[in-house]
Amino acid sequence: MTITTRDWALHLGVIAILLAANFLLPEYHRGVFSRVLVLAVFAMGYNLLFGYTGLLSLGHAMFFAAGLYGAGLPLYHLGWSVPVSFGTGLMAGIAVAAVVGVLALRTTGVAFMIVTMMFAQVFYLGTLYFTTWTRGEEGLVLSQAMRSVEFGGWSLNLSDPSTRYMLALALFAVVLLAMLWLVRSPFGRTLVAIRENEERMRMLGYDVFRAKLTAVVVSGVFCAAAGAAYGLLFGYVGSGFASIQYSILPLLWVLLGGAATTLGPLLGTLFMFYIIDYSSGVTSAYLLVVGVTLILLVLFFPKGLLGSVRERWLGWLP
C-alpha cells in the first residue's frame, strides 16, 4: 500500500533514462521528446480523472488551454515574468477546474462527458471571441525576449533545446512522482474505489462528491501546468489548443498507454507521436491514424500497453 523500493526504482529509473536522453538523443528527437514530456503531463492529469477516478471527460482541452492562456496572456500583454506567468497559469487552471467540477459533477456517465465537452466548447469559442487579446486561431507568438528568465545575474534561455528539455523533464518528474505518491496514498485508493463502486463508498462514510471534486481540481492543475509550460517553452499560444481535438488526444494517449497506470500516459504520448511522425512520411492522413487507433484500442485492446502488461505479468505496477 505504501510506495515500495520497487516503485521508487522503476520511476526514478525512468526519470534517469530520460535525463540521459538529453545528452544522447539526436537534435530532432530531443525536440520531439521535449514536447512529449510536456504533453505526457497533460495525459497524466487526464489519467488521474479518467483512469483512476473513472470519470470520462471530453473537455480537458479547457484545462490545458486555461494554463496556456493563463500564462501566455499576462506574459504577452502585461510583460509579467516567466515564473509569475507560470503561476497565473496554474491559478487559471484551479479556477476553471473548480467551477467546471462543481457544475459537471452533478451529472454522471454520458451526461458528464457531454457537459464537459460543452464547457470546453464555450471556452474555445471564448478564445475566438476575445480575439483582441488572443488573436484567435492565429494566436500569439511569445518572443524569445519575453521568455528569458533572469534571477540575480543568472539568465535562462527557454529556446535553447537543452534548457527546454531539462525544464520539460523537471515538470514531468515532479508530476510523475506526485502521481505515484497520490496513487499509493489513501486518497488514491479512495478514488479507485469510487470508480469501482460509488454507492458503496458513500455508505462507507466517504464524501464522494468532495473526493471527485478534488480529483477534478488536481487533474485540472496538472493539465494547466502542462499548458502553461507548453506556451512558455515553445513560445506559442493559440485557440487550436482549446479545440475539441485537444480533449480527445489525452484520452487517446491514456487509452494507448494504459489507463490507471502511472507510466502509461508517457508511453501512450510517445507512441502516438512517433506513429504519426512515421505515418506522415507515408501518408498525410493524420486524422485517419488517430481514428483507426481509437477504434482498434476500444475494440481489441481496452487496457492499453501497460494495462495489459500489468494484467499478464506485473501485477504490482502502480
Binding site: 470520462l56 471530453l58 456517465g109 454520458v110 462527458m113 480527445i248 484520452l251 487509452l255 498525410s284 492522413a285 493524420y286 486524422l287 485517419l288 488517430v290 481514428g291 483507426v292 487507433t293 481509437l294 477504434i295 484500442l297 476500444v298 475494440l299 481496452p302
Partner: peptide, 21 residues
C-alpha cells in the same frame, strides 16, 4: 455507452480524413 463514444470519435476522424483525401 462510454466505449461507443470513444469509437464514434474514431469514426468521426476517419470519415473526416476520407472526405479530405
Amino acid at each position: 455507452p462510454e466505449a461507443t463514444i470513444v469509437a464514434t470519435i474514431g469514426m468521426l476522424y476517419i470519415i473526416q480524413q476520407l472526405a479530405l483525401t
